[in-house]
Design a protein around this nucleic acid. Structure first.
Length: 279
DNA sequence: CTTGCTGTTCGGAA
DNA sequence: GTTCCGAACAGCAA
């Protein structure tokens, strides 16, 4: 489910719900969710206080007294917060990790496909963790430098879409926003990166900043099942122009939106507005 | 019933 | 270095 805007919305919701809560104990019903030793994970979380909830790319970061809990929601991970009296969803078969708080409330991790992952690291390992993954800059005006972006694009002949997805040139873009960004920039998803001219790179950089910013402001997109931790759907799906619009009229020129498979991912684009650049 | 599709990431093989 | 494929899973549509 979640790309950067959805994770950001989850982060904001969690900060309203669990800030200052102290974890009493943790129950894990699907051990594969946890990276590293399960018992160590459980032991270390007992007694930890939630100082803050942060985000880097699509990674959710629970800043605890002594540890950082890194949580990746992958396709369908969700957090549900329940007060002490509210036992709904405790028996839900898709709840795989339960955080029992000292005040009796609970934080449930719900993940239908069980693809999500959680890992504990120390605060001083945080920078190294993301550096080791090669995670690119946040798509913000402050962090996302166009000259660095242009330089890296010029070094690869790969099609632009999978490059946007691989998190290394810029963090947080997933399949939905990649298609929307390329449509707004008027660039065909199959265009080799080293064929993009300076105007196209400028348009692409600008589209990345704008689409992600607008999606964050809209609380993300709810395509099938996404909800933030307050149970709210996103609103940006109403602003989508090509994703999931196969066969519909392009909002700019009226051509029919195409859907192809590119790097094993469904890819939507307008064959007229995003014509492949001649090589 | 079967097949193919889905918002992600990782690792192995060609 | 790049690309393809499968794996990790469950549910839904055709």
């Amino acid at each position: 489910m979640p790309e950067l805007p959805e994770v950001e919305s989850v982060k904001i919701g969690l900060n309203q719900l669990v800030l200052g809560q102290e974890i009493d104990r943790v129950q894990v019903d699907w051990p594969r969710i946890i990276v590293g030793d399960l018992q160590t994970f459980i032991n270390r979380l007992s007694g930890q206080k939630i100082i803050n909830v942060d985000r880097r790319g699509k990674y959710l970061l629970f800043i605890l007294s002594d540890w950082v809990l890194i949580s990746h929601l992958r396709m369908e991970g969700k957090y549900l917060y329940k007060t002490g009296e509210d036992l709904s969803d405790h028996q839900n078969r898709h709840v795989h990790v339960t955080f029992f708080m000292r005040d009796g409330s609970t934080l449930l991790y719900h993940d239908v496909r069980k693809f999500g992952r959680m890992q504990l690291i120390t605060p001083d390992q945080l920078d190294h963790y993301f550096e080791a993954k090669g995670l690119g800059p946040e798509p913000t005006v402050e962090d996302f430098d166009i000259s660095v972006f242009a330089s890296k694009l010029g070094k690869t002949h790969r099609p632009i879409k999978p490059v946007l997805l691989d998190q290394k040139l810029v963090a947080g873009i997933g399949n939905i926003y990649a298609d929307e960004i390329l449509f707004r920039a008027g660039i065909h998803p199959n265009t080799p990166c080293d064929h993009l001219n300076p105007d196209q790179i400028k348009a692409l950089h600008q589209s990345i900043l704008e689409v992600i910013h607008q999606a964050v402001a809209s609380g993300g997109s709810t395509i099938r099942t996404y909800r933030n931790s307050l149970g709210q759907a996103g609103k940006f799906q109403q602003a989508l122009q090509v994703y999931g619009k196969e066969g519909q009229a392009c909002p700019r020129c009226g051509s029919r939106i195409c859907k192809i498979k590119l790097a094993q991912r469904g890819t939507h684009f307008c064959p007229n507005c995003q014509e492949a650049k001649k090589v």
